[in-house]
Design a protein around this nucleic acid. Sequence first.
DNA 1: AGCAATAGTATCGACTCAAAACATATTTGA
DNA 2: TCAAATATGTTTTGAGTCGATACTATTGCT
Lengths: 184, 184
Amino acid sequence: MNDELFNLIERLANLLRQETRLEGQSLGLQPIQQEALYYLSTCNRYSDTTLAVTEFLGLTKGTVSQSLKILESKSLITKLKDNKDRRITHLKVTEAGQEFLAKTCPPQKFTDAITGLAGDEQSETRALLQKVLNNYQQATGRTAFGVCKYCKFNLKTSDGIRCGLTNETLSNQDIILICREFSA
Amino acid sequence: MNDELFNLIERLANLLRQETRLEGQSLGLQPIQQEALYYLSTCNRYSDTTLAVTEFLGLTKGTVSQSLKILESKSLITKLKDNKDRRITHLKVTEAGQEFLAKTCPPQKFTDAITGLAGDEQSETRALLQKVLNNYQQATGRTAFGVCKYCKFNLKTSDGIRCGLTNETLSNQDIILICREFSA
DNA sequence: AGCAATAGTATCGACTCAAAACATATTTGA
DNA sequence: TCAAATATGTTTTGAGTCGATACTATTGCT
């Protein structure tokens, strides 16, 4: 059973990478660069740094630094130094970057494949994969990542929504993004 | 919803590749080489060629040829020319290759993550992912691959089991392997 | 002030990858 | 029958990935 699930995930990943490679050809983007770009379009302002991308992709920071350099050179992201901590660089997806992602990510045929499932099958798949991922992340001891609004530090007060870690107020847009500090 | 499922699969794949990289260090094996080796350990005698590996991994044959050369140089597989068609080379996993796979594939922590699921959750996940993969393969128009005994060319006769494409008899071991000619 | 820790970059060598050219073997078809 | 087309697989080349290591710059700690 482990073998079968392992096999299925590997094969899905192979197909995804193959299609991603095709999609990226128009801009000369490698799969890993597209993954980084996609992550940056889904993460919040506490998680848009080189190190967060590193943790998310499971690579070393030197490797990621190079990929980000290429994304910047193609004007798909911009770098912005943090005001409080000058060591930190925030990475923002540009208009061009967002346009590219809207066209290519997730790949069209993958979307088709998902649409072929019934509505309850889709949510069932998501719930089960989420569970597998959580277990796996726990087993490897890696950073979890997760959607802000489901985090235990997400505080709903009478004044609005607030992050218990940073004590900053959060907008409705903020809380649907992915955060590296996520904790269930 | 597409986005979420896309994201989950990407992240599982990232973790798997990361752990695979670690497991392969003992023999100096790259993730892609391990994937090829694993595939060869699960496929039948009609599917143990360079081209089949190429289709399975979604790479070009030149690329795959190089990876297989490395596996051969490390004595994890052997090459054997086909008797009927001398263009074809069959790839067999050696004892050493099988030992390596038994220890490392699927990765231990992935197995742990799966074991954390209830029994019916496991089979449910498998069924759903199988469905997604089938849809996806159909959408991309790629070779399906599948287990011999569930194939429409698998014929159960009074003499035993037979493949309707090759007209060869099949053993009980044969029919649990993956075939590139699979058709549902 | 001084030292350790953190964020990020630069460089190196081994490896992946697609593309193209190539070598063989088989099939087709006039 | 035999040349052209097709199929399997290898080699070469150049762009890019990757981890490891060493490095800079900034911040935190004592």
